[in-house]
Design a protein around this nucleic acid. Structure first.
Lengths: 227, 227
DNA sequence: TTATTTTATAACAAATTTGTCATAAACTAG
DNA sequence: CTAGTTTATGACAAATTTGTTATAAAATAA
C-alpha cells in the first residue's frame, strides 16, 4: 500500500484529501506546516509521494522542497492556489513531478498521483514476460523460479528486447546494440543462431516461439504479454 | 538533442509549437493526422517524447495512443481543448505522462516536457562507482567507455556489491546470492578467485583494490565513491 | 617474533561459450 | 507452382569460463 504525505495548512483541504485518498486505498499521513513535515517524513521513510502546498505558515513550499528531497528522494507534487504560469514553471523546473492548481478535482489528482507513481514503480528492475522473469538487479532470468542460466550474450540480447516489448528490432540494430561497435563485426547469421539459443532456453516450445517473435524481412520483436 | 513528435491537425498550433520548441533547442518533427504519424514515428525511432492532440481528423488520439506505444515506448503528453475531468482521467489512466488543455502556455508546456523527460532519463539504470559504469539495461560494465566484458558470474558478483555500496557482505552471503541455492555448493576459495578475477578487470591497480575492498574475517564490500 | 588464520595468486583441466559453416526449412513474389 | 529470399538448425573448432588445487603472501594473536 502506497503511503502519501500531505503537507497543507488548510484543514478542510487536508482532511478532505486524506479521506478521499484513504477511500482509494492509500495510506495517508499529513502535516499542517513545514517544520512538522520534515519530522514526519523522517519517521516515515517508506513514504512514496508527497503532496506539497506552497503557502505554508512557516516556510514557503518552494524552500521546503529541497529539504524534503534531502531526507527522502521521492516524487513531489505541488498543490497550490496560484495558477500563475511563472509559479508552475518554477515548481516544475526545480524538480517537482507535477503542479496542480486549486480548486483541484479529486479524481484528476488521483490520476496524476498514479501517473507519477507508475513512472517510479516502473523502475522496479524486474520484468515479467509470459512466464519468465528477468531480474536486472541479479542479472538472472527465471522460469518457474528456476534460474535459466543465460550466458552473458544471451542475457544482453534478451534484455534488449525485454526493455522494449512489442518494438521491432532490425537485425542490424541488435547486432549494434549487443556486440561492441568497436569489435570486428560478427556475421549476420550469428545473430540467428543466438536467437535460437535464447529461444531454446526461454520458450515453452522453441519450435513455436511466443516470446521472441520473428518479423520476417526486418528482424525480431518481443511479443507483448498483453497482446 | 531531444526529438519531439507533435501530432496536431491545427496548423497554427502545430507550427507555433514547432517554432517555439526549436528555439528551445529541441528537434521537432510533426504530423497533422494519425495515419501519417505512425509512419513518421517508424522513421524516427530516436524520438524522445510525443505531444498528441486528441481531436485528429482520422483517428481519435485515445485510439492512436496504443498504436504509438507499440511502435515505440516513449512518453506521451496529451494536448487538447477538452478540460473535462473525465477526459483528463481517461488520458492519464491509459498511461499518458501528462495532459495539458488548450489554450496552453508555451512556457508551461516546455516545463512539463522537461519534467517528463527528466523522469524518463532518471530511469537510466546506470550505476557509477569510481571510474567504472555499470549499465543494468545493457548488462555492460564500462571503463573509459570501453566494455570490460565481464562474464555472467563476474557481472553478478559486481552487481551485488554495486547495488549496496558500503555494505559488507559475508562470503557466505555472496555465495548464496550469486550461485544458485539449489546447486551443489562451490568451495569457499572459489569466491576468492572470482573476486580476484573481477578486480583484475575493474580496478586501476588490482594489487591495491579500491573498489572491492577486503573486510578481513568477514568478507568484502564495495568502497563508496563518497567515503 | 612466531604460529595460525585468512586472503591472494598462478596454474590446470573440464565444461561451456562463441562464432562460423553447411544445409534445411519456411516464406514470398512472380 | 517455382525460384529466390530469408530464417532455422545441427554440428564444429577455437576461445573462454568455471571450479579446483597447490602454494604464496598478508594479517593477526599469543
Amino acid at each position: 500500500m502506497e503511503k502519501v504525505l500531505i503537507i497543507e495548512d488548510d484543514r478542510s483541504i487536508r482532511e478532505g484529501l486524506k479521506y478521499y485518498l484513504e477511500q482509494e486505498n492509500y495510506l495517508v499521513i499529513d502535516s499542517k506546516d513545514a517544520f512538522n513535515a520534515t519530522r514526519v517524513l523522517h519517521n516515515n521513510l517508506d513514504t512514496s509521494i508527497i503532496l506539497l502546498d506552497i503557502n505554508l505558515p512557516d516556510i514557503n513550499g518552494f524552500d521546503l522542497f529541497p529539504k524534503l528531497k534531502e531526507i527522502l528522494n521521492i516524487p513531489i507534487i505541488f498543490l497550490t492556489a496560484s495558477d500563475l504560469e511563472v509559479s508552475i514553471v518554477r515548481g516544475l523546473d526545480m524538480g517537482a513531478d507535477d503542479y496542480i492548481t486549486k480548486p483541484f478535482k479529486a479524481r484528476e489528482l488521483l490520476s496524476r498521483i498514479k501517473t507519477v507513481l507508475r513512472r517510479v514503480n516502473n523502475n522496479s528492475n524486474v520484468i515479467n514476460i509470459y512466464n519468465i522473469t528477468i531480474d536486472l538487479n541479479q542479472a538472472k532470468v527465471l522460469k518457474n523460479g528456476k534460474d535459466l542460466m543465460l550466458t552473458a550474450l544471451e542475457y544482453k540480447i534478451l534484455l534488449n528486447f525485454a526493455l522494449n516489448p512489442n518494438v521491432v528490432f532490425t537485425r542490424e540494430k541488435i547486432l549494434a546494440d549487443v556486440w561492441d561497435v568497436e569489435e570486428e563485426y560478427v556475421f549476420d547469421n550469428t545473430l540467428t543462431v543466438y536467437i535460437k539459443r535464447v529461444r531454446e532456453k526461454i520458450e515453452d516450445d522453441p519450435t513455436n516461439p511466443k516470446i521472441i517473435v520473428t518479423v520476417r524481412g526486418i528482424g525480431y520483436k518481443l511479443g507483448d504479454y498483453h497482446a
